[in-house]
Deep mutational scan, measured.
Amino acid sequence: QTVHVKGVQYHFPNPEEAVKFALKVAKDLGGRVEFHGDEIHVE
């Protein structure tokens, strides 16, 4: 599972961890989380 944050990719073997990370980052940055297939983008 890959999380993209402002052009940087973070790889997580566990999808659940990836989602938790993405939600935390989005909250910290005041952004939103978008799901694109296997990828999660924080915009």
Rank of each mutant, 00 (worst) to 15 (best):
K27Y: 12
F35T: 05
Q1W: 15
I40W: 06
V5C: 04
L23P: 01
Y10V: 04
K6G: 15
V42E: 01
G7H: 06
V25A: 10
G30V: 05
F21I: 02
K27T: 10
G37K: 08
K20I: 10
G37S: 06
P15Q: 14
L29T: 14
F12K: 00
F12T: 00
L23S: 08
H4V: 15
H36K: 13
R32Y: 13
E39D: 12
P15L: 15
L23F: 14
A18P: 00
P13H: 12
D38C: 11
A22K: 00
V3M: 00
G31H: 04
E17Y: 06
D28W: 10
D38A: 12
F35K: 05
H11L: 09
V19N: 06
V8E: 09
V3A: 01
A26C: 05
G7D: 07
G37L: 07
G31R: 03
G7P: 03
G31T: 04
H11R: 09
F35D: 03
V8C: 09
K24E: 13
E16I: 11
G31W: 13
H4E: 05
H36S: 08
H4R: 10
K27A: 14
H4Y: 15
P15A: 14
T2W: 09
E17R: 05
G37Y: 06
T2Q: 04
D28E: 15
F21G: 02
D38G: 13
V5D: 02
R32K: 11
P13Q: 13
F12W: 03
H41F: 14
F35Q: 05
K24T: 11
A18M: 01
I40M: 05
R32G: 04
V25M: 14
V25D: 01
E39W: 08
E43R: 14
F35I: 11
Q9K: 14
F21C: 03
L29F: 10
L29M: 12
K20V: 08
E34V: 15
G30Y: 06
V8D: 06
Y10I: 06
A22G: 02
K24P: 01
I40S: 01
D38K: 11
K27H: 13
A26P: 00
V5S: 03
Y10R: 03
A26Q: 04
G37T: 05
